[in-house]
Structures are given as structure tokens and as C-alpha cells.
Design a protein around this nucleic acid. Structure first.
Lengths: 193, 193, 193, 193
DNA sequence: CATGAATGAGCCTTCATTCAT
DNA sequence: AATGAATGAAGGCTCATTCAT
């Protein structure tokens, strides 16, 4: 079931492309395959062969991070404290989104290009849904938040951090501050509505 | 300092342009001045004369709404209950962002094109800052939220609603749900951090 | 109902484009809008503004010739000798196709780009159909040829001349030879089938 | 002068390529060697080794049919009725062109890629020339048709059928109708010119 | 022999902006 | 003021062919 391993030279090019894409993403430059090709010193065709669309490339760049998050999700399920588990999961998620610029667009996208992406996102968020459910049943979380709200809220926080701007170094702090505030709201019973 | 009043025909063109832009914004179509000109039945040059850039046009479209919000801000300052005042202000803000698609980009933009936009945004958010401050001093709001967090958080919620998707009709409900949750978090003392 | 007359400069460019296209067609070079633009010393956009697609350009190049043929068709209807009228019409048609390289593809195309093209083709071939019908009813033409066969047969002859090759000067002779042969076949009663 | 017989696996690849090409031709899909390779499950290089250009492949696909036609030509020479022989030969030719899409381009091409193609085409058309000559000398055919007109005329008819369009099933009928008409013209003395 | 990755010229199309009329 | 033609950089994508493995 493993994909045929790439030839050595192809693998090197693949790496180069990913590396260039990584840089561009971090710079905030939109991914353009022609551009990637030029910067990687490769022919356009080569890049198109590896990644049919910018989205496919972006998702590939995001994959390792998604894998980590999915793993975290699975691990969080083992924590016996429902609230702590949910908190840890969401914290990781937001930290990742704020740290790795490839994540936000992939997370917010309604449709994926690569099956692998769908798989990982689905694994990740079904873990999230379970964690939320568990926390809600244990009375730790207000009842009016649905599993389908997790993705939007995490994206919202990441976006808020983005709008806030400032040094990359401070981003994480801001993210923590925003998430803490939101979690406080999640935890409380909806008293004043 | 008053703008020269437009000639009658120029004024009519101005109106047309705005009307078309409004429609496009509501449709979610990106504002392209050429496109606007065609739909308004005007020459491109005419549109460029009135609005040098798409941003200028967008800001003009957003202006009435910004004025309303700024007015709301001023009025909220009159409310003697600090928390209620803040809550009302933020609620209006989020509702507006979710309802009027011209608002989100203008709000999130770091730099404005029109002085009038800067003026209104500044009026609006200095009201917000005062409201937050007052609420904080009255002990109704956790101390670690700075005035500079209001814009990001409101944009974040609007973005979360956007990511959540769904029928336009449901957007407001979602927005309220998200805002309520966040406000709950704002209100509480930061106990568990 | 007349199209707004072009501005003087626009008209000049329009002419240039047509002239270049004419040359390319005569050379047998496929029409590429970028190429046309370069040769005409114009920006690509200019060419695209005038002719949205290569087909539109080609049809425009072919238009004068189509107009002439349509007029010939109408005039042929006035001839009281059914056979002579048909013969003259088809002769003109084939001569035109062989002389003007823009004609063959436009004639053979199932779908047109410009309404004007459709109009002219339709005028031309409805005249042809009438002529054929009249000749058939007068007993001058074998009964098993339908009006829908005229276009294919004319295109077929033009193509045959093309395959035959040779100097442009000789093309007309070849065309006459082939057409004469075919007409001879049209005229005879289908005896040996 | 015999080609080295292919190794068994090479032969199998050769077959596969031809089979795929046949399918593509029948579908009306343009032959692209890359495409052929993919569909045949072979490397591009393999296909290029066997067929240096798309034309070579196409000619190879057409070869069996050309062989059949050449054989028919030789056999027709045995018929003692000059007219009947010519008629039979041309009928076969047109039927083949209309039935097998690989034939038309190969027939119309001025230059061949494979020597074998040249050989077969030449065999076929020298038979045709002889048949025409014989028929002409016997007074069955008008004198102004040269041997060099046979290919163009057959291609012309095939093209006419193509332009006529319609269901593949009806193509043959149309072809017969057109050929019959033309033959009628060939047969008659050029009376009315 | 077979493979298939790499190449990059070449074509298409859009759009923000300028400027002659 | 208004017009809208012109511009051309910029980006997208395909495909025939070569050549390292």
C-alpha cells in the first residue's frame, strides 16, 4: 500500500520544491507553481508533475504538521481529565496554526485536494469532536457548542492573531491569550444569555 | 476643508458606481474597477476619477456602516453599566461584520486609503477602547485584554462565522453564539491559567 | 441598428489586425492571437478586445467573401435556367474556397462564433438549396442529392484541390476540373446504381 | 533487408502500443506519444523507441488497411472490364477511408515517415493509375482526369463525408452516394463544358 | 531494452492602469 | 468630466522530446 519510492533525483527535486514552498509560505508569498519552479531552479513541468495545483503543494507542505496534530488528538483521548484533554488539544492546534502559515488555509478550506489531507483533517477533528463531547457530557463545557464549531473557532483565533500582527515571537503569546479567554468562555455555563 | 460639491451628473455617476460596488460586494465578487465600470455603464476612466483604487471604492462602500458603528460607540459611552455597554458595542460590531461583506476587509486592513475611513475606524475603536477600559476598571472584564485586542477579536469572530459557512440567515445566530462564548471568557477572572 | 463606428485609432488597429490575419491565413499559418498582436505591433489586449477568439478573427476575415457569395446566390436565383444557375453558384463557391484560405474552415465549421457569419452562411446556403431544388424539380439534377449535401461536396472539392497541391495559379484550373466532373455526375440520371 | 525479429517482450509492447493507438484513432483522439504510453502502461521512452514520431505510429496503425487496399488494387487489375475494375477499386478506397480514421491523414500526407508506407501507397496508387488509364483508353472515362487526381478526389470525398457528419452508421451510405455521383461524372464525356 | 523524470518553449488569457480623444 | 481603447506584465498550463537511471 506504500507509494512507489521516488527515484533519487526525483526525490531531491521533490525536496527542493517543498523547501522552496515552505519558504514562500513562511514569507507569506502566495504559492505560484511557476514561481516555485524558478526559485527551485527547475523546469515548470517538473513542478507540475509533482504537484498538479498550488493547493496540492500547500497541502503537502502542511502534511507533517497535520500528522503531528492528528497524533496529538489521538493521544489527548487517553487523558482521563476531559477538560484538560480538550484544552491541550486546542492549545496545540492554535499554536500550530499560528506557527506554521501553511496550516490556516488548509484547515479553513472546505474541500481538499489530496486524500491524505482529508484523512488527516478528519482524524484530527474527529478526535476534537470526541474530546468536546466528552467534556460537554462531563459538564465542563457549555452545551451550545457543537463539534462543527471547533474548526471555525480555531481558525478564528488564528486569524485574530494574524490581524493583531506584531513580531512572530509575540504571536504565540497573543494566541495563548486569545485561546485562554475563549476557553474561559467555553467552560462557563451560559449564564447571562 | 469641505469637498467641492459634485456636479449633478458626476454625482449621479458616483451613486451608480457605489450601487454597483455594493451589489458586487454582496455577491462576494471581487471589486475590479473595470468590471464596475462596465456594469455601471460608465467608462473606466470615470470610475478611476472617482475612486483611484479598488480599496478606495470598498472603503467608500463601507463608510455608512462605519459611521453607524462609530455613532453606536459614542452612544454606548452614555450607558452607565460598563459591561452592558461593552457587550452592546461588540455585538453591534460583530453583527455588522457578518451582515455587510464590505466591513471585514476594511476593518482588518492595517492601512487605510481614505482619511475618512481612518477617522471613522479610529473614532469607533477609541470608543471601544474606552468601553473596555471602563469595564476593566469596574472589574467586569479580565485584566489581560488590551484595547488593541478588540479589533483582532472581532475580526476573528467574523472570520470564524465565515469558516463555519451555512446559510446567510444562520450567520447571525452563529455570530451571536461565538460572541457570547467569547464574552463569557472576557468577563470571567483568569482563574485557571 | 448599425454598430457604433469605431474611433479613428481603434479603426486603424482593427484594419491592421485584419491585414495581419489575412496574411497569416494566406500563408497557411494558424491564427494565434498573440502572434497576430506581435506582428501587428499591438498589445495582446488590443487584439483580444477586438476579437475574443481566433475563430472570431477568422470569421471576420472571411466575411467580405461570404458577403459576395451570398449576393451571388441571391442573383443566381434570378437566372431562369435552373441548371445554369446552380452551376454558376457552385462554381463561384468553389473558386472562392480555393482562392481564399479563410473560407474553407469557416464553411466547414458546424458552429459559428459571429452572428453575422451564421447569417451569411445561412443566406448563402438557403439560396443554394433553392437552386438545387429548382434544378431537381426541372429534371436537370439527379434526385438523390439533398440540399444538405451541397456544403460537404463543395468542401470536399476544395479539400481535393488542397491535397492535389501545386502552384496557387493552377489551383483554379484543378478546381474547375473537379467541379466539372462532379457536376456532370450531378446532372446525369442515376443509371447504373 | 529483413527486420530483426523483436524479442518476445518487445513484441508484446509493440502490440500494446498499436492497440492503444488504434483505440485513440477510432475515438478521434489525437495521437500523443506520452498519452499512448500512459494508456499502454509503458514508459514514454519505450514508445519513442518503437515509434519515433506520432506519424510513424499512425502509419503503422494504417498499414494493414493499406496492405488490403494495395492487394485489392492488384486484384482489380485482373478484372477484364476496365470500368468495373476502376469503380470497384475506388469504392473500396473510399469505404476504407470513411471506416478507418487512420487512413485519411496518411493518404493525404505528401511525405511519409515509414518506407513501408511509401511502398504501399505507391503500389496502391500505381494500380489506381493503371486502372484509370485502362478505363480512359477504353473510352469509359472522360479524358481530362489524370492519375494524379485519384488521391485528391478520394480524399475529397472522404472529407465531404466528414463534413456531412452524422452517425458513423450512415457514413458509408453517404460515401456511396457521393462516390456514385462522382463516378457518374467521371464516366460521362465532358459534353457541356 | 525499458523507464519515466525533467525540460522549457510556447500558447493562452486576464486585468490594473494610462492616456488620447 | 467622461470615455473607452490600448497596453503588456503576469500568470496559467501543455506537450514533444531528451536522457539519466
Amino acid at each position: 500500500m506504500t507509494t512507489t519510492p521516488l527515484r533519487k533525483d526525483a526525490a531531491r527535486n521533490w525536496e527542493r520544491i517543498i523547501a522552496v514552498a515552505r519558504t514562500l509560505v513562511d514569507e507569506g508569498t502566495p504559492l505560484q507553481l511557476n514561481d516555485v519552479a524558478r526559485r527551485a531552479g527547475l523546469g515548470v513541468g517538473t513542478v507540475y508533475r509533482h504537484f498538479a495545483t498550488p493547493e496540492a503543494l500547500l497541502e503537502t507542505v502542511a502534511t507533517p504538521c497535520l500528522e503531528t496534530l492528528a497524533a496529538h488528538g489521538r493521544r489527548a483521548l487517553a487523558d482521563t481529565d476531559p477538560w484538560r484533554a480538550l484544552e491541550a488539544f486546542l492549545t496545540r492546534t492554535v499554536e500550530a496554526q499560528v506557527t506554521d502559515a501553511s496550516l490556516a488555509p488548509v484547515t479553513a478550506a472546505a474541500a481538499d485536494t489530496l486524500p491524505r489531507t482529508t484523512e488527516l483533517k478528519s482524524a484530527m477533528w474527529s478526535a476534537g469532536a470526541t474530546l468536546l463531547d466528552r467534556a460537554r457530557r462531563s459538564g465542563a463545557v457549555r452545551p451550545d457548542l457543537a463539534p462543527g464549531d471547533l474548526v471555525p473557532l480555531m481558525c478564528g483565533i488564528a486569524y485574530a492573531v494574524h490581524v493583531h500582527g506584531g513580531e512572530p515571537a509575540d504571536r504565540i503569546d497573543t494566541a495563548h491569550r486569545y485561546l485562554t479567554t475563549l476557553l474561559e468562555g467555553l467552560r462557563a455555563a451560559p449564564a447571562h444569555t
